[in-house]
Design a protein around this nucleic acid. Sequence first.
DNA 1: TCCATCATGTAAGGTGTTACATGATTGC
DNA 2: GCAATCATGTAACACCTTACATGATGGA
Lengths: 202, 202
Amino acid sequence: MHEEIEIVTPERDEGNELVSRNTLRYIILGLLWAHPMSGYDIKQAFERALASYWNAGNSQIYTTLKHLSQAHLVESEIIVQTARPNRKVYRLTEAGEAELEHWLQEEVPARFTKDEFLTKLFFCGETSDEIALQHLHEHRESLRTQLAHMEWARQQYATRPARRPRLLEYQMLVREYKEAVLKAGLEVTERAIQRIEQEHKE
Amino acid sequence: MHEEIEIVTPERDEGNELVSRNTLRYIILGLLWAHPMSGYDIKQAFERALASYWNAGNSQIYTTLKHLSQAHLVESEIIVQTARPNRKVYRLTEAGEAELEHWLQEEVPARFTKDEFLTKLFFCGETSDEIALQHLHEHRESLRTQLAHMEWARQQYATRPARRPRLLEYQMLVREYKEAVLKAGLEVTERAIQRIEQEHKE
DNA sequence: TCCATCATGTAAGGTGTTACATGATTGC
DNA sequence: GCAATCATGTAACACCTTACATGATGGA
């Protein structure tokens, strides 16, 4: 009896484009390129820096690491600890680096956009203005929280001495982008709230 | 021998909140509330009005209609046609209306954001500025196309005589929101392109 | 003749989320 | 004594995408 180890390699079609995108794989490769990390570290990296653009639960992170390992894109080493559970630290293999490089060059696929707030708001004409207002208020709160997080991130980037300035440069650009988009959304939301509240006072 | 018909009703937990969200279900209910429609019509409604906020393929639309039908939230009627394939037109049941109403009142769930462009840009410090620039150029094009579509939609809303002004009001708000967000993204993208191109001329 | 439109679907597989399981240490 | 943190994972399922299947009509 022997274990069958299934080697999962990303499939490419004739045009050398990935059939399945699995963004999470590449995010993990991108993170590991910067530093070798454990699954736990990766989850933390998401929460610190990436969560506004992409996020994943533990379970997905650990299973993806396993897949990457089976595809020989990463390799792991167990760091024995006494007072804490052992850590399984992953690093990129050469194949992993090549894979990441390929993803970075590849065009961003055009995908369906999905925005649950706008989708619900779209149908709010089928219910009362009170309900719509409540959604708008909640959304405003959410945007303010997110903007506060962006401000926090800005300060992090500003104060941290950059060991690798190129990495930081693009992370700051992404932060700037997200902040601008959130602000634009906030303005429209605030105007809408005012407008609807005005109509109801009259 | 008899067929077992599985009645799929949306599950609620004790707090009376939906366990699974299945936004597409509610979008379809929302569309059918306005007019009875066939699957084909729904696909077209997506392309005309909804695609910027949510979209779905044919296959998903037809299977979801089937589910909704099994859950007695919609009912269908076959419209026989001679020169074209028959149409299966769906309309809301009372249970369907109640379900829609419930969804409209329910808070928008906080979910992970996913933005493939920003995610890739985040890692562009790990590759060359040339590659980043190419992504930025492609993204700019995409934003311009989307903005053109928003302008088209604005004109549609402006010229169409509103049979049900409340429905339109919120659709226009959503359009306005999306447009503002796209514009904000375009500005940051254009600034970034200029900045990076400047650096390379020096 | 060839392609687009009308119209409805099935099958398979990839992706993402929730719930669950485990167990020691450190700080309040 | 209780909760949070550290640390890794499995199982089940919900959701989404791609590819495929069918077949008539009408216009370029």
